[in-house]
Design a protein around this nucleic acid. Structure first.
Length: 803
DNA sequence: AGCACGCCGACT
DNA sequence: GTCGGCGTGCTC
């Protein structure tokens, strides 16, 4: 007996285990662990992952596997194992763990249709449903559903006149291109050329081409090169002189681009000192974690590149994670420039097909280096020699939906398997990472100097309260405005940073104080000027701007807060000659828009780059000499214990954009709380002091890295349900954990309602709890039934977003 | 998740 | 006496 254990594609607790299936003899040598298969499951057919092939099963009535979906396993043994680890550590289902490791194209789509079993049956069908089978034997379920004849069809299915067919569909086809090749030897072609009719000029041209270039050629290229039509080629095929075949091709998102080849740069003493231990770890295949702590512009990338070079020389592979790569085309350029076609790129800006193709390049071993965002950590390499995580502190490495994993943790887990180093790079490491480096768990490598010994930019902190007192009510301080005009005159570039998109943050009635809120979420709507709409940034709800207050009918509506759009407008008024490029979610949502805008800026088509978060990282343009942060404290007052850390990181990152090359840079930070340590210390670019100070705060309040935390969020349409469930859960957990653990809550989430669902949460802080994971599993187990009926309980081990 | 099975109220 | 509501439990 040959049996395959399969994890099926049904996301529930009850099915979160393997199901055994017989392997039909014809697939016996094909089916292996890590492959996707189609299996019967109840009356349906669904996708599943084979986790094991064995000789025995304790289940007596086994069904057979219907067919494999892959010829080669899509998950290696290591990735299967990693899937189990993910499921265990993030408390997600195994099927979700497997699916997150693969491109979305591998997720099955399901179809359902009704088939008429025999033409003769049509006579005995009820007359309402006869017309459905007039044209074809099958009807899709959707067509039936919208005609409200479902019950009639179901009766027929039970009677046996029609059959319900469940199908598993592939999401994507491999892209194929038609190739034309000669069907005979050159000699024969030469002979045949003479035999062609005199007036078959075009055919002669084609044949002559193949005599000169005796090799397959892409049809489209052939047509373009010889300026002949498809018919010409067709007739030659018909004569048996040429053959056509389809060849699978990759959709290469970077195909139209050439990358200038770069060579390793000479390293500074500091860089050499950093590269040495990394090389050693690669050479001796020792699993180690390094923290490459280097100030902005200190040349971390070159350290990465030369470490990878070493890995490639050993015949191994490298994974490089960068925060949301579409944001840093410059990064791609550097890697492709050094390693050429060996580089695969994976990020959210690619289409599903492009991602799939890049993934397959990796799987087939055609790429040796992958540069990508979070999910690239699952690249199906078999022989990893190094994993690099750039901007290690970036919160985008944490996935905020199931499985709620952190790429850093996955990297460390994979590196253990491959006995290779992990390099975490940052100018402003997360406190957790820096604390580990200090304790010696990670090895600290420091780059304290900027390349070319360029000085860090001079930072000036402006107290906006002073500006108000001095009668300046504008969003620009006098100093910033002065410098801005100065740069315009000198034809140097400025980056203005503001972490709020839209126009104004909210709309308030001057008479009664009414604030326009989203009807589905407990959050105020944001005014977007370009389409004159109020928009909810959480559920996407949109409504027009009120002309009068919905509460008191007053016409005195005021726009409060400042967004990128409003700044753009203001700049247009104050400095009409300045060319402003605005970058935020609204201007970069279209594919390639991001890169285009940056490109324009780089080529000097803009004087001021105005943007949100997304311009804080990776910009490296020589002509930027001024960076202005319009309001440093917007994120400081969020209900999040990391808000100081995030503020410090962001300010430091943004400041790092200035003066990276020959021209010295200046930074102006505007704030209403200049005395706050995260702002003051960002001004001095003093990470170490910030670390010391923030650690004191974390210790007092029992937050990471002193404690681990788990956030449990319950949501449901009914408020009472949410409150009672969360209360019971908190009580249950409290009773099961030791006295050293702290269970806070239940409390309403900072945003009490999103999309008409109420949200309550419960925060667990702990140092070491043997029973924790077991207890949390028990909670999920206990509410299994409610979860199936619209309750959600999300458990986030190590949350990054506290809302 | 789907779906079948099964047990109580309003209809022919 | 039947149709159909959705609560319950199963899928190798």
């Amino acid at each position: 007996m040959n049996v395959a254990s399969v994890i099926v594609d049904v996301i529930t607790k009850q099915t979160d285990k393997t199901f055994d299936y017989l392997i039909p003899d014809k697939w016996l040598n094909t089916i292996q662990p890590g492959m996707r298969v189609i299996v019967p499951f109840g009356p349906r057919r669904i996708q599943g992952f084979v986790t094991e092939v064995k000789k025995h099963s304790d289940i007596h009535a086994l069904k057979e596997i219907i067919e494999p979906m892959d010829l080669v396993p899509v998950l290696t043994d290591e990735l299967l194992q990693l899937g189990n680890w993910l499921a265990e550590n993030t408390l997600c289902f195994k099927i979700s763990a497997f699916q997150v490791m693969l491109p979305a194209a591998f997720k099955a789509k399901y179809g359902k249709k009704i088939k008429l079993l025999s033409r003769e049956n049509i006579e005995i069908l009820p007359k309402e449903i006869r017309p459905f089978f007039e044209k074809s034997e099958t009807v899709s379920w959707e067509d039936i559903a919208k005609n409200e004849h479902i019950t009639l069809f179901q009766k027929e299915a039970a009677r046996g006149t029609v059959e319900v067919i469940y199908e598993v569909k592939e999401r994507l086809k491999k892209k194929k291109v038609k190739y034309i090749s000669p069907a005979h030897s050159i000699e024969i072609l030469i002979e045949q050329l003479k035999l062609l009719q005199k007036n078959a000029l075009k055919q002669k041209i084609v044949l002559a081409y193949f005599i000169d270039h005796f090799e397959p050629v892409e049809l489209q290229k052939l047509l373009a090169r010889l300026d002949v039509s498809q018919a010409t080629v067709k007739s030659l095929i018909k004569k048996g002189l040429l053959t056509e075949k389809y060849v699978e091709v990759y959709r290469d998102p970077y195909k139209d681009r050439t990358f200038a080849k770069t060579v390793p740069l000479p390293l500074t003493v500091e860089q050499l000192n950093a590269v040495k231990p990394i090389h050693q770890s690669i050479e001796q295949e020792i699993n180690r974690v390094f923290l490459l702590f280097g100030v902005t512009g200190s040349g971390k990338t070159e350290v990465y590149l030369q470490s990878i070079q070493k890995v490639l020389a050993k015949g191994k592979e490298a994974i490089v994670l960068v925060p949301e790569i579409s944001l840093t085309p410059q990064m791609v350029k550097r890697f492709k420039g050094r390693f050429g076609d060996e580089v695969a790129v994976l990020h959210s800006g690619l289409s599903a097909g492009e991602k799939y193709d890049e993934w397959r390049k990796i799987q087939r071993g055609e790429a040796k280096v992958v540069v990508g965002a979070r999910s690239a950590i699952f690249a199906p390499f078999k022989n990893i020699g190094i994993i690099i995580i750039d901007e290690e502190h970036e919160t985008s490495y944490k996935q905020e939906e199931n499985p709620r994993y952190h790429a850093r943790d996955v990297a460390i887990e994979r590196a253990k398997f491959h006995n290779c180093p992990v390099v975490l790079g940052s100018a402003t490491p997360s406190l957790e990472t820096f604390a580990r480096a200090k304790k010696g768990v990670y090895q600290l490598l420091t780059l304290a100097k900027r390349m070319n010994n360029q000085a860090l930019p001079a930072v000036e902190i402006i107290d906006m309260r002073e500006e108000l007192r001095a009668g300046n009510r504008s969003m620009f301080s006098r100093l910033l405005f002065e410098k801005l005009t100065d740069r315009l005159e000198k034809k140097e570039q400025t980056v203005l940073f503001l972490n709020k998109r839209g126009h104004s943050s909210f709309v308030i009635c001057r008479d009664c104080g009414y604030v326009l809120n989203c009807p589905h979420c407990d959050i105020s709507l944001t005014y977007h000027r370009f389409n004159q709409q109020m928009k909810c940034h959480y559920c996407g709800f949109e409504t027009s701007v009120p002309t009068k207050c919905p509460e008191c009918s007053s016409k005195h509506i005021r726009y409060f807060g400042t967004g990128t759009q409003k700044v753009e407008e203001e700049l247009g008024k104050l400095l009409p000659e300045a060319r402003v490029i605005r970058m935020d979610v609204d201007t970069t949502s279209r594919k390639g828009a991001h890169e285009r805008l940056l490109d324009n800026f780089q080529r000097g088509k803009g004087d001021i780059l105005l943007g949100t978060q997304m311009i804080a990282k990776g910009l490296d343009f020589p002509n930027i000499t001024l960076v202005g942060v319009l309001s440093a404290d917007t994120m400081l007052h969020l209900p999040d214990f990391r808000s100081s850390e995030k503020t410090f990181q962001l300010l430091t990152q943004v400041s790092g954009r200035a003066g990276r090359h020959k021209l010295p840079g200046e930074v102006i930070i505007q704030t209403y709380t200049p005395e706050h340590y995260s702002i003051k210390l960002a001004g001095n670019q003093d990470f170490n002091r910030f670390y010391e100070q923030e650690m004191v705060v974390r210790k007092i309040h029992k937050y990471p890295p002193f404690y681990f935390i788990v956030m449990l969020t319950v949501s449901h349409e009914q408020l009472m349900k949410v409150i009672s469930v969360t209360g019971k859960i908190a009580e249950f957990i409290r009773a099961r954990l030791s006295n050293n653990a702290i269970v806070l809550g239940p409390v309403a989430s900072p945003i009490q309602r999103i999309n008409n669902r109420y949200r309550y949460q419960c925060l667990i802080k702990y140092k070491q709890e043997q029973n924790l994971s077991q207890t949390l599993k028990a909670v999920l187990d206990h509410y299994q039934h409610d979860i199936a009926n619209g309750l959600t309980i999300s458990v986030d081990m190590n949350p990054y977003i506290m809302m």
